[in-house]
Write a protein that binds this DNA or RNA. Structure first.
Lengths: 226, 226, 226, 226
DNA sequence: CATGAATGAGCTTTCATTCAT
DNA sequence: TATGAATGAAAGCTCATTCAT
């Protein structure tokens, strides 16, 4: 079992599962180079030569650890999935006061998911979707879907506390994501310059208010504003 | 001035402007082949050979009308921009009854923009964003931004009629797009199977209700519903 | 129909058929380079780079005329088949006096088929047999089998004239080939130095005598000699 | 002197000589793997990785025992030479009755030398002949030449017993090989399907009869038959 | 002695691009 | 203007070989 490629098949066959320990340092090193190149150039734009150079190994070594460029890409994306999930899971941990809390969650999602690097990953995954539809689906499940579920759990908790009132927490989660993230993400996907910090704050206040106008149990009739 | 490539530089310098008359039939023919191939295979997946074959001309002729593959891609995208704008402008034309109307607008946007072909174009443009950032921005302006503005105009009209109440029509437009389109688009971008027709209808009713809960002037306190 | 590759599929689909006119000069030029390289180095030993250099064209041009290295090899071999058949058909044309005639036929076969170049072709074909069994069979039919049949026709003629006596002309043809060619060919295949001219002559006289000892109608009891 | 590779140069400098004791077990093991792979895939088709796997050692170990792939191939072939010689030496041992005996020898040669595995070896050696001419010559001497000599010895014995009459036993041996083996071998080399068992028997009877028509001392005038 | 990680040259093939006609 | 033959750079991938352990 000293062949490093023996690790290939055994890695997380079920999808974007638990965080992978991934202990082989050379493999990590290669994936790291691959990450930089694929994010910067996309799947087709980055050549194996590029990846090798970025990883500081020879082209041949790439094929010791991965069967093909596609396999390497898949391994990379799966790794990134894990990273993303871990990020999401921490998003709204331990904040207080519903409106304030939701603003913080929103801001946290925005700050995390609109980072250049994450957007590049998203672009890469979307671009590669046509060629790797199964992979794209896994990404959806590990990313957006997981975010929504995490939010749903949080909302469920708040409902039991009486802070929120809703019947379908998942739908509310989806709505929250759509309201506070989708628009900014759409802009970023098409390379529009990001909002200023103040602009983002205003946006978050507005949209969280919209959300609460519907889901806060003691919501007065919503005043159309802004 | 018999060189058709002399038209290259002069085409729509300002961006995705008004519908281009585009009179040269051979150029149209080439762009049409390019459209089919790029949508089907993506920018890197489609070879100039493919485009030439799809357009029914020789490879050499491609270079009579376009300086490079990238230039052809850019020209194609700009043309598509115009097409999209025209589509958007017709979206909610001549329907009546606010809630019913908004549902029809929503459904129309969904049906149009989630078509396989449009999604392929979107994926292609997002994927190419890294390489053509200016182009991506133009697309944003011609696509989502224009949609929002078109909606804003429509809302403004409804406000004057007293059917809606809002202060910032553009913000309301953005919110509408986020609520009724973004989630489905996110799913489609990552190759998730589309909702059933009934599912889509339910989604539209739900989200339009949310929208009206905030912006209908005589809105009662919104009832949180599934 | 100006694409040179359109000639690919239409070339002699039935096997080693009639002499091909093969008029495209560039294709000929490439096949000629391929011939030199494949004969010298074998199928795997010769790289497409080698072939391109030998043919005086660029590597890319190779693929304008042939779909793959294997397709080129097959086209080459088929061409060589035709060449060989033409040679065989002329072998014993118009000589007189049975023993003298048979000696001349034998010598002609030997001189033709033991040329360095032909032996190289044979080695190449045999070496490639494992990978291209169908092709190898075609070669057998176009080469050895055809030789035997040509001899059989000749023997049949001589039988009607009363010069030879035999019941199965094909078997006699096979025997003749075995007696006068096989041994020398086996030597040549394994790179043994060829017999001297005088040695070859002696060999031919001996083996033709053996043949006639059996098939000459007025043969006296064969005297074991030499 | 603990380096096993010190055995390399000293191995059988004279060619395909006496059976080599070959005592190093690991070397044997490697050659055995090499034999399987080279026969199955040919010299170029089999990778050192394949050989290592087939031999159950690491790739590096291969280079402890052999300087290069070519050296390993040469060593393998030389070993196979010995094997073949031993086989040949036993071919016609201890049978009785000249015609019956010759048929048995013939059949034995055919059955041995036309086995798939032996043919594969032959094809491999012929194919490699261009690249390793000296090796090919050694093979000729160890294989066909040795067969002929063994037959010659056998014929000489029979001559002293009065069963056969000939002046040049080696020539007779060569003739025998040509008559009873060459044709079938030629077919097999070019991947033609083998004769049926009955067909082979008929072939052997016919050709042995031809042989005896010339070399049996009491041969009546040969009757042209079949 | 044995290993297997690492290498880099070389493989077949593709493709955007040029240019003589 | 339109062609398509020709190109050469670069792609993904393989493999014989080396070397530190």
């Amino acid at each position: 079992m000293s062949d490093p490629s023996s690790q290939r098949a055994s890695r997380d066959p079920g999808g974007c599962g638990p965080p992978e320990p991934e202990d082989n340092p050379k493999r990590r090193q290669i994936l790291d180079g691959a990450r930089r190149m694929f994010l910067a150039q996309g799947f087709e734009g980055a050549s194996m030569q590029d990846v090798a150079r970025a990883a500081g190994v020879s082209k041949g070594t790439l094929y010791v650890y991965f069967d093909s460029k596609e396999a390497m890409f898949e391994a990379l994306v799966l790794t990134e999935c894990g990273r993303l999930q871990r990020t999401i899971r921490q998003l709204g941990a331990g904040v207080e006061g519903v409106e304030h809390e939701l603003r913080q969650i929103a801001r946290s999602m925005i700050d995390t998911l609109l980072q250049d690097e994450v957007m590049a990953a998203m672009r890469m995954m979307i671009g590669a979707g046509e060629k790797f539809p199964d992979l794209a689906r896994k990404i959806y499940e590990a990313g957006p879907m997981r975010s929504i579920e995490t939010l749903a759990e949080y909302f469920a908790l708040r409902v039991t506390r009486g802070d929120l009132a809703m019947q379908d927490c998942r739908e509310a989660g989806a709505e929250f994501v759509d309201l506070v993230l989708a628009g900014l993400q759409r802009r970023a996907l098409l390379m529009m310059p990001p909002l200023s910090d103040a602009g983002t704050d205003a946006f978050v206040r507005r949209r969280v208010a919209r959300f609460l106008a519907v889901y806060a149990p003691n919501a007065t009739a919503p005043e159309p504003r802004q």
